[in-house]
Design a protein around this nucleic acid. Sequence first.
DNA 1: GCATTTAATTCACTGCTCGAAAAAAGGATT
DNA 2: AATCCTTTTTTCGAGCAGTGAATTAAATGC
Lengths: 383, 383
Amino acid sequence: MSRTRLAVVTGLSNASITAIGSELIAQGVLAEGNIADSAGARGRPAVELSFNRRARHAAIIEIDVTRVRCSLVDYAGTLVDRIESPMAPEVLADTPPAMFLFERIDQLLRRNPAEAPSLQHIAVSVQGILDRSGDSLKWSPIAHMSGQSIVEPIRQRYGVASTLVKRGGLLADGARLLYPDLGDQPLAAVFVGSTVAMGLSFPDRLAGPDFGATEFGHMNHIPGGALCRCGQKGCIEAYAADYGVLRTAYAVPEHSPPAPKVPPAAYDELVHLAQTGRRTSMHAFNLAGRAIGFGLSRLMTIAAPAHIVITGPGASAFALMRSEIETALRDSLVCRINGQPTITVHHDEREPIFQGLLASVLGVLDTSVSALHNADAALSGVP
Amino acid sequence: MSRTRLAVVTGLSNASITAIGSELIAQGVLAEGNIADSAGARGRPAVELSFNRRARHAAIIEIDVTRVRCSLVDYAGTLVDRIESPMAPEVLADTPPAMFLFERIDQLLRRNPAEAPSLQHIAVSVQGILDRSGDSLKWSPIAHMSGQSIVEPIRQRYGVASTLVKRGGLLADGARLLYPDLGDQPLAAVFVGSTVAMGLSFPDRLAGPDFGATEFGHMNHIPGGALCRCGQKGCIEAYAADYGVLRTAYAVPEHSPPAPKVPPAAYDELVHLAQTGRRTSMHAFNLAGRAIGFGLSRLMTIAAPAHIVITGPGASAFALMRSEIETALRDSLVCRINGQPTITVHHDEREPIFQGLLASVLGVLDTSVSALHNADAALSGVP
DNA sequence: GCATTTAATTCACTGCTCGAAAAAAGGATT
DNA sequence: AATCCTTTTTTCGAGCAGTGAATTAAATGC
């Protein structure tokens, strides 16, 4: 945006924006450009101040139970290059996760030699429970991921900082970008697919490891109930994730071991059957909706999101689960008093995850810029 | 503390502390004193910088289902005077809550004419769901409280700011003061008594209306279960609050209307019976523990407190509920991975509530000091 | 070519903070 | 009692981020 707009938005004076802006341009962090729609306007035309794309770059990695996506982005947030590949559940049995990522990052850097030297950060979206240091996962629904150091090997190989970020929180932060008129109200994003996950997004983003991303899918729904992939009984996921719905639909006993992987086609088929009125399938989605609904109603007593976004492959089955979810929500005190949260569906879950991770990464790059600035200031004192 | 210690704690230089300190002393906000244990030490003795007690005062009001407590505190946080009285459940039927508080505040101010003029804030601890503006309660377990404006009448009558604060959050913030070695980990405080309530405390205190204080007691435990005072079925409270335990113990059908008030003696008697082995009473507390335990296990999937404090009258029955609570927690994924939170009992719930409210009020007074300072600075620019 | 309009810069100034040096206030030593 | 030592506090000059007012810059309209 222009310097004048920046002054309004930041609350700083024009004088300060000029000073700071010229310093950052000198450092190569910002660049000047022309504002697109300035033609025909009166007065001195505004000059756009934008991030210098080539100032720094970052790699963004999204790991899923089924696939990996590796993106190279520049400091303006534009995608430079991307590598996508499916991931078989057993691939990490032989290759440590860090090695697995090395291959892809190397490929990305080889393909973009101009950008490689300014790589500053590598951020990885993961599912599961992070350890205290944030270096590895203590538990993950992705096979062979837990307990393996990830951040540290990356840091050593590429000499840049790296962070693991929980997918649930990213999903929520990214989804918030889709609903800019939420104001300061919290938002919950629920992922329904091969797992059930949830993230909370607050405007002033707490987003610490203790909060924001949750283990919603493993909240108990029914004590002693269906067997979950995590080994517990009665988790929401055991009813609402793809394997749970399939198990119910085909009347497999609920304590039999969950399928390690459900082909997308099998799930889609089930959705189709339910949509066309097959009783057993409809029943399975009813139970799934009920599990999610009670989970949300329980969530409402702790953090009350004003808006709930349902996303992931299960979003296509939302119509089949809607009435159960809404019934459960309606019967909760908080909803009765404060009104029910609005619920919307967002089919593509990868876009919000990427956007959330992108926002997080750009924030990291920004702080590295300001840290550099402070270090310079400190050094300049030394003769 | 001394200026030197202040410099270390705040991170400011000694020079700045001297400057700021002398200005605040001139304003009458701070005062100098002698540090107690300075005798015998070498070097120039440190001078204690403390809050000027008489600089400002605040009223702290704690409303409960059974009683009201009104305290006058000074700027150093010391209690100046206090009025306590029981409250019959029907008293607010005739008198609006604001009027009811006026009587007590008036009495407090009449009794302390020297302090009255420097009253700056009136804070009220309440239970229930606040409306957006924070002026009144949309719902409350206290009869005839909901929907009645409270903050605005107080502001008009006394000309000072006023805030309603949810009791659950205060309990947690106050309890955190009891466990200073928690570091930055979240803490949950559970109140068990005529209601069941919970508050979460984070070190960087988010504490907005959307978070911190929760409706934990009205989290669903069993769909369609026991009838709660809130009108819903299956709330944790309907099993674990005094009326719920009594209902179970005396084999009253769980859908019969809850008792409006349980005499403390009746509850104590039940605890005693259970402690001495009466089967029906023990069973009732087992069910209560199970409700709380599953509630906590569900909470753990959203916010994982490192420590849980059980307080209120029900704390005396903790031993009777402990094994059910711990069993439920043990069977949750987060506890299996991250370890179980430590659970302790704190019998007196009023002290942490008061301390929490006190901390909140002193914070408000501080910001009023700094606001005054900023206003002065702004005015001094005008000739 | 000149008035008008809007954007950006310059410049003198303020307030906050700091480091280093000096002063203050005691006990310890002789 | 005089002097040294230790620790706290203040003083002083300097730096820096930020500001308002005035000025300059770059366009359009007439």
